[in-house]
Amino acid sequence: MNLFLLNLILAISWSALAGSFTLSTLAVGFVLGFGTLWLLQPLLGGPSAYFLRAYYWVRLAVMFHYELVVSSLAVVWDVITPTQLSRPGIVEVPLDIKSDTGILLVTNLISLTPGTLSLDVSEDRKTLFVHAMFADDHEAVRSQLKNTMEKWVREALET
């Protein structure tokens, strides 16, 4: 978190030197600052988890948007064609993630991708009930959610 603050300060000073606080100078400053900090790692007390964590967060954001678009198209297709292709059903997904933040992120992201809607978390916080729109194969839905959303969130939070 310390390095993140340093990175922000670098971005702001870059815009100050450029003489304009616009979106593009701040973004360029942030990227340049990230690169500089990465090169300066040995001076700042050895390799830091900051860079790996940044990579995992970016991957989480990018893959989430990809999932959002792909599954939106599936739902759109089902709405505009006259036949109903969906086979909805409730799938139980075992949860490996334990923290409150983790469960909140996983359930929120699952709800946000069309085609899956998180309904409830069991009392012992080990099972998540998901309503899936295309639930022909429960095992496939389960392993897909575990290998995408939950894995990405776990890596982003726990590195």
Binding site: V76, L112, P114, L117
Partner: peptide, 24 residues
């Protein structure tokens, strides 16, 4: 499409899919 989905899809839970996410 989201509003169309609310009219066309068969039950509450499936309709929720269309309304919340396509809306976002």
């Amino acid at each position: 499409i989201a509003s169309l989905g609310v009219v066309r899809l068969p039950d509450v839970l499936v309709r929720m899919h269309a309304s919340t996410k396509a809306g976002t």
